[in-house]
């Protein structure tokens, strides 16, 4: 069975990390600003569905991509209205969105295509980028040679997110409203607006992560396409202590574990259901080992009553 542990496993792991990275970075913006976003999974599902439908209807994956982000942002905005403006319990609001994501795509898909489980295959997938010289080098070629453009985008977002959060005034204010909104407000910062920005970003990125599944990695929306990846992304975020670099590591561990379980199916004589559990069990073990050690943004999950 050891022949499955090759470079192709890593490459496939990087591909599978991509939706996790996008969603986890989205979650990072939201949580660093003090809004718990367990709706990531639901937003991914909405993104995947919208992406597939729009890409199919327009025969253009780019439109699908934009539509997925837009809808992700919109769904996140609903979470924002509930948890920022109306100071609802953020976990309850997020759960509501996750529940909606189970039902709404199925209903719409049935109305549009007479199928509650799949949408038609899209005509064109997002482009695969071949890096000219590298793809011809033996080892590097396999590792870095050809990926969907979204894979490159996701990995590029990691340092970019770090830079925005640590080095810009936007990032400083975002962290401030997540740590001590009262202090931020005293310093003249509009706490609600900052939190909306953060939630929007999380929606855009999670929607994009969903679109990756339906128009880059796959070519249609199928029921429960996220398979809990939004929650794994949250786990990676906690594993990563709410910092981009470590979160990337977390996403890659889970991505490679996912790739591993796919490749190991049928290779070793264990029922496939148990093999499929592997990345999820790994999540639980990693989280149990890490719980309580990370610095959680002090105001994370706590609604704030702004003066005006």
């Amino acid at each position: 069975m050891w022949e499955i542990l090759d470079l192709e496993l890593i490459a496939s792991g990087l591909r599978l990390s991509t939706p996790l990275i996008l969603a986890a970075l989205g979650g990072m913006f939201s949580e660093r600003a003090g809004v718990v976003n367990i709706a990531l999974d639901g937003i991914m599902i909405f993104g995947a569905f919208t992406g597939a439908v729009v890409a199919y209807e327009t025969a253009n994956p780019w439109y699908g991509l934009l539509a997925a982000m837009a809808l992700g942002g919109l769904v996140a905005h609903i979470h924002g209205i509930a948890s920022i403006r109306y100071q609802a319990d953020q976990v309850v609001s997020g759960t509501a969105i996750n529940l909606l994501a189970i039902g709404v795509p199925a209903v719409l898909s049935n109305a549009l295509y007479n199928s509650t489980t799949v949408t038609p295959n899209i005509q064109l997938m997002l482009p695969i980028i071949h890096i000219p010289i590298i793809s011809s080098i033996p080892i590097l070629g396999t590792l870095l040679g050809k990926y969907s453009i979204l894979v490159f985008f996701a990995f590029a977002m990691v340092p970019l997110s770090w830079f925005v959060i640590q080095k810009t005034s936007f990032g400083l204010r975002l962290r401030a409203v997540g740590e001590n909104p009262e202090a931020a407000e005293t310093a003249g910062i509009n706490v609600y607006l900052m939190r909306y920005y953060a939630v929007w970003i999380s929606g855009l990125l999670a929607g994009l992560g969903g679109a990756f599944l339906s128009i880059a990695h796959g070519s249609s929306y199928v029921n429960n396409i996220s398979a809990g990846r939004g929650f794994i992304a949250l786990a990676a975020l906690i594993f990563g202590r709410y910092t981009p670099k470590l979160t990337l590591v977390g996403c890659m561990i889970f991505g490679i574990a996912d790739a591993f379980q796919i490749r190991v199916q049928g290779v070793i004589p264990i029922p496939v259901q148990f093999i499929q559990m592997f990345p999820y069990v790994l999540t639980m073990i990693v989280l149990a080992g890490l719980m309580g050690r990370a610095h959680v943004p002090a105001a994370d999950g706590i609604p704030y009553a702004q003066a005006k």
Partner: peptide, 15 residues
């Protein structure tokens, strides 16, 4: 009205 995990400078310039 301070943010403990941030530096003195970050706290002072905030806003």
């Amino acid at each position: 009205m301070l943010i403990p995990p941030m530096t003195v400078t970050e706290n002072i310039i905030l806003g």
